[in-house]
Design a protein around this nucleic acid. Structure first.
Lengths: 155, 155
DNA sequence: GGCACCCTCACGTGGCGTCAGCGTAC
DNA sequence: CGTACGCTGACGCCACGTGAGGGTGC
């Protein structure tokens, strides 16, 4: 006749953190962290001995967090969405805004990475295995190629 | 007749951190941080009052650090290159290894970002402004699309 | 009484930025 | 004597991971 059995019969506040971890495939530490920063507030209570007791909605919440994270949202952004949800509103419009911003940021990131890729490839292509030892450089292969960037207009 | 004038005549340990900051276009805090983690050891001394005094080689070193950073190397990797340099060896072979690794990592990052880009675009394309309120979801638009990813064969 | 589980607190990651509260140079 | 510059902590960021040193449930 412990609180587990009692609460399980009503399906409320039945899960200890380890069970939630197994069911959600998230580390215990992560769940504790999410609770600490307030992401799980409406789904968690404490037992008389201080154990976190989660109700079944925590799993849906963790799924939402995981999914939103893989889509590139930060925990702060996710929190603001969850707060809207907890106030009874639909977080979708704000979510859409965030996702559109992410999409733009991702394009920019891809462009930056591609530029870096090109630059790295160029450096490696003209790499000198035994460069002349100069006192003015640490590794002559790694040098500012801003002037060489205009190369390619030959032929 | 301060140490500035004396050392300037020999061009050694003449620069205070603010001058280095101006000449290198790096924030003072950044230079202090680099010195703290040992990146600048052979180019810095202390005055009797505790001020950092840099010799002129620090500028070459900071340039190398900046350049290596923009190429994607971490400060740890840069440090190991500088340590090779300080032991009189050419850091180029190790640098090349690092850069090749970076190139691979960048390709993987680009692929991951492109996948994310596609997924985000798909989600935004089929976005429902006024979705049905379900109790099982927080925002129905943000849902695991693993099964819906095969959509697109209509019309 | 033993073992799995739970708790909090504190510190680490990278690459700095941002105060706060001092001393120093000119 | 001001003021621009220098110094050393300590804390913040982000999303946790790691480990210590304990208490709880069964």
């Amino acid at each position: 006749m412990n609180e587990r059995t009692l609460t399980l019969s009503r399906e409320r506040f039945a899960f200890k953190i380890g069970e939630v971890a197994r069911l959600s495939h998230l580390p215990v530490k992560t769940i504790r962290y999410y609770e600490e920063i307030g992401l799980l507030a409406p789904t968690v209570d404490r037992s008389h001995s201080g154990y976190r007791l989660f109700n079944e909605r925590v799993l849906q919440r963790l799924e939402f967090i995981k999914r939103s994270q893989t889509l590139g949202l930060s925990l702060q952004e996710i929190q603001s969405l969850l707060q809207l949800h907890d106030r009874g509103e639909l977080p979708c419009p704000e979510a859409k805004q965030h996702l559109q911003q992410k999409l733009q940021a991702i394009s920019a990131q891809i462009d930056a990475l591609k530029a870096l890729q090109t630059e790295l490839q160029a450096i490696l292509n003209r790499w000198q295995e035994q460069p002349v030892r100069r006192e003015t450089t640490i590794c002559p292969n790694i040098q500012d190629g801003s002037r060489e960037s205009e190369v390619g207009s030959r032929e």
